[in-house]
Design a protein around this nucleic acid. Structure first.
Lengths: 322, 322
DNA sequence: CTGAAAGCGCTTACAG
DNA sequence: CTGAAAGCGCTTACAG
């Protein structure tokens, strides 16, 4: 069974391909009689005509496809929400979003041999080579500062870390430690958040916190013992899973939380909300972030200026642990 | 700046487009002198030539793109791992994987106007209409039983539920309850797991468990009280987040776990490993599942038979809570 | 060993 | 109001 083309529809409906194209694309300014219109549509449906995306793209020089490039690391619900919203917003412009999970080790160049995207949205920074290839291929790139090596996401990470530290400082802690994840793929995130914690501590004239790796899913008994011996009274954790591991470590040593050790996470994960004590955490206002991403992409497509990053994107949810 | 085409490379290198195509695609059987080869490659790089995916696809009638269609619900790390592996395996065949997060309410038909995929991998079942459109467009579809309305994922979900119940039954429990999530998007998963639990209970001649919605992230105090009053001694939870909420509910009533109430989750999430008591759970052997998915897709591409679903895909990780 | 030419399926300026 | 024709950029049978 050969593919059904617009020529088949035209022949069957007794018109030219031109008319078929006009009708099926609702080309403005094309005036085709009502009955012809109906007949063409009916014929297309009956034959099961599906236009060739490749031919369309080749002819128009641009596709309706937006590729979102995600980093390799486990992304979670925030990114899901972001993409969901982006998909909705772009759908109103007739654009489709497809997601590519990118391994840093591999070049993106080969991907453009398989697809001709309208626009590429980067949620991770691109390698300079990749950026150059895309620019040369005339692909529009959004979501990452094109010349700086820092994305708005990096900035957001720093803000999150700062918020954690400021909360701890405000509660009177003076010796703060940082619990970072041991998954190397999370490094870039962790570095950003840690930088924020350190900046806030420095601003409060406190000693700069040391970072110790705390694997999620194992009680952090050793780390907690070391902190206790060093006089640390509060720890900022990379995320809620890491914070929960710290909580378990404290329990193992009979340390009372938050009196003897305060703990703050990031994510506002369900597990933290039902921990004992309930975990204090930093929540990201996903709705706001989603709006911003979608607006940035739209602006880029329209050649407008990018909207400013919202002022105060994250917030502390104070519960029992800090 | 106009797009660089193979004609530009040909002119600049002093050869025909034919030769450029042969060299850049390493066409077998094309014998081009070494120095010409080098010159063409060098010229292509210098000009920043990127072949047009659309033209290539149009000409060959098939693209190198595989689209994975995911359902709308929060997917999490298992699916990430699956896709990661699939991407790796297909890369060895020169294929690229792009992911589409699909809302059931919306038709997939429009997507095929933006891309011409080589193959579509469905991790959720497709609507009959969508399936028909794809077949007509000559798109190969994998990963979902094409005529039955049940995917291998549905089967897997039932197996998980059965495992939970069997573990509880083996421990001597006779009154078992089911805690399902309140996120409606998870319904399909929850139904499958619940069916497995019920089947296993029926097989053990026990009363069929009632399902009560337990929101993740809130101590399930009311649900636990009701279970206690009804003489329930064990609960199978949809996943670890829900199980943790049950654990918190038990704590709120001073119920000892597992003696007065046993709890089993699904996922082997980090938070469950550091809970008090550590959560007993069902772990999915992601590596095996990944192999199976990748092998299925490869088989479909090669026109071979799909490999059988592995016998015993999930396993109970017994810890403190059941 | 290399090139001229056809054709994939579409859209759109142009002619009628 | 409708059609014939060009051309998007590539690959590949064919001729030399």
């Amino acid at each position: 069974m050969a593919r059904v083309t617009s020529a088949d529809v035209a022949r069957e409906a007794g018109v030219s391909r031109t008319t078929v194209s006009y009708v099926l694309n609702d080309t403005p300014g094309a005036s085709v009689s009502r009955v012809t219109r109906e007949r063409i549509r009916e014929t297309a449906t009956r034959l099961g005509y599906a236009p060739s995306a490749a031919a369309r793209t080749l002819r128009r020089g641009r596709s309706d496809l937006v590729v979102a490039v995600l980093p390799d690391w486990p992304t979670g619900s925030v990114v899901d929400t972001l993409l969901d919203h982006l998909t909705d917003v772009l759908a109103t412009r007739g654009l489709f979003v497809l997601v590519h999970h990118h391994r840093d080790s591999r070049s993106l160049a080969d991907l453009w041999r398989a697809v001709t995207p309208h626009t590429v949205v980067g949620l991770a920074p691109f390698a300079p080579d990749d950026l150059r290839t895309m620019q040369r291929a005339g692909i529009r790139v959004v979501g990452t500062a094109q010349n700086a090596d820092e994305t708005s996401f990096d900035v957001a990470q720093r803000g999150i870390g700062a918020l954690q530290a400021e909360h701890l400082v405000a509660a009177g802690h003076t010796r703060i430690a940082y619990a970072r994840p041991d998954d190397p793929r999370l490094g870039r995130f962790a570095d950003g958040r840690l930088a924020g914690v350190r900046a806030a501590c420095a601003a409060a004239a406190l000693e700069v916190p040391a970072a110790v790796p705390v694997p999620a899913g194992e009680p952090a008994a050793a780390a907690v013992a070391a902190w206790r011996d060093a006089g640390v009274t509060a720890v900022a954790a990379y995320n809620d899973d890491v914070a929960l591991a710290v909580l378990a470590g404290a329990a193992a040593h009979g340390l009372r939380v938050p009196d003897e050790l305060a703990v703050i996470g990031v994510d506002d994960a369900p597990a933290g909300r039902v921990a004992a004590p309930p975990l204090t955490t930093v929540a990201q206002p996903v709705a706001q972030q989603s709006e911003h991403l979608a607006a940035s992409v739209l602006a880029a497509i329209d050649g407008a200026d990018a909207p400013p990053w919202p002022d105060d994107p994250a917030l502390v949810v104070a519960r029992g642990s800090a």
